[in-house]
């Protein structure tokens, strides 16, 4: 066994072990609450007086300041929870409230799910909705493409696919330049 093929074999075994770990670590398909694609927990505060104001449709200043302190503020160009800028919707199936904010986009004016306030045994925990939730819920109406994967690939991330296609194009051009004799380009 020559040393370089031994290195190759070790690399294969290492990658195999890594792959087995990844396969074991991936959450089951369709698991709604697998961490990455639903929402990310921001912070939680005790809810002595806040639930009433949430019911009334107003975000209490305690939550607003904490959210801004974390980083979702004007400087990092996130829409902030000003008075008229948000709407609160009761989210029955997950037992909490959705905070919707309408970003000033040119073509999509409907409000967008930004934060999710969950109420558990006297404590309010604030979650931040993730990008996949927006794509899954808004892809149909925004891009009218039936297949959300195609919407994600060709429409939301059209730039990536454009340059991916340029990569394939340049691959073909390189093979043409390399393989053909000078006379017959």
């Amino acid at each position: 066994m020559k040393p370089e093929s031994l290195v190759g074999l070790l690399m294969v075994l290492f990658l195999a072990a890594l792959f087995v770990y990844v396969v074991e670590d991936v959450p089951a398909f369709g698991d709604k609450y697998s961490p990455a694609n639903r929402y990310v927990k921001l912070f939680s505060i005790d809810a002595e007086g806040l639930t009433e104001s949430l019911e009334a449709g107003k975000v209490p200043p305690a939550i607003k300041n904490e959210v801004e302190r974390i980083g979702f503020n004007k400087e990092n160009n996130f829409p902030t929870l000003e008075e008229g800028a948000y709407e609160i919707e009761r989210n029955e199936e997950e037992g909490g409230w959705d905070l919707l904010i309408a970003e000033g986009e040119l073509y999509f004016k409907e409000p967008l799910k930004y934060y999710f306030v969950k109420e558990e045994d006297g404590k309010l925990t604030i979650y931040r909705y993730n990008w996949p939730v927006r794509v899954l819920e808004k892809a149909e109406e925004e891009t009218a493409v039936i297949n959300t994967v195609t919407a994600g690939l060709a429409d939301y991330r059209g730039y990536d696919t454009m340059f991916e296609e340029t990569v394939i194009f340049s691959g073909a051009v390189c093979v043409i330049l390399l393989m053909r004799r000078r006379g017959r380009l």
């Binding site: 493409v145 195609t150 060709a154 296609e165």
Partner: peptide, 20 residues
């Protein structure tokens, strides 16, 4: 818009990939 993405863009990608 849906038809534009589903047909014009996808067909564009398909043609380039096939010919490449």
């Amino acid at each position: 818009r849906g038809y534009m993405v589903a047909f014009v863009v996808d067909v564009g990608i398909g043609i380039t990939v096939m010919a490449a």
